[in-house]
């Protein structure tokens, strides 16, 4: 999302920019996590092949890293309007109509994001209090779920901002 587009009043734009920067940083953190995971897996494969000993828990680390990384990707995707939709049937509809629809769906998405954040937070609490941990490394997965809950809440915020931006005439 470029900031030189016309997207309305100053303070709102500043907020969007700041949140956008956080979303970018978050996604880069997630991508870096995937890269680190790829390094870990490569070392594990190499170790298993050459030394007959893999990194313990490589499979479950991949699983945890993927979940955390994907949640870190969601806000950036929304910010860039990357969630695909069908525009075939509304190509000739007036701009205000399409804009209103998009704002409505943003609102629904924000609602789901916060719902998921709230439910995941409870799920994280359950997992932490029941001491549920990963199979090999006994990593308490509740903390990974908690991190996902926080990122889902941030996704809701981002989605609300993209809606406000549409309302002010931006894209």
């Amino acid at each position: 999302m470029t900031s030189n587009e016309h997207d309305g009043a100053g303070p709102a734009r500043a907020a969007v920019d700041r949140v956008g920067a956080i979303a970018r940083t978050l996604a880069i953190f997630g991508g870096a996590l995937m890269l680190v995971t790829a390094v870990m897996v490569t070392l594990s494969v190499g170790g298993r092949w050459a030394l007959r000993s893999a990194i313990p828990g490589d499979f479950e680390l991949v699983q945890i890293a993927t979940a955390v990384a994907v949640f870190s990707f969601l806000p950036l995707c929304q910010l860039g309007r990357g969630n695909v939709f069908v525009d075939t049937f509304t190509l000739r509809a007036p701009d205000w109509f399409n804009r209103s629809l998009d704002m409505l769906w943003d609102l629904v998405y924000a609602g789901f994001a916060w719902l998921i954040a709230w439910r995941l937070a409870l799920g994280a609490y359950d997992a932490i209090s029941s001491k549920t941990s990963s199979m090999v490394l006994a990593f308490p997965i509740g903390w990974a779920i908690a991190a996902c809950a926080v990122m889902a809440a941030f996704l809701g915020l981002v989605t609300l901002l993209t809606m406000m931006k549409l309302g002010r005439g931006g894209r």
Partner: peptide
């Protein structure tokens, strides 16, 4: 590398949604 990560983030997020 940063651009690659950003692209990966956007496409993966779309699929996982």
């Amino acid at each position: 590398i940063k651009q690659s990560i950003i692209q990966t983030a956007e496409t993966s997020a779309m699929i996982f949604m």
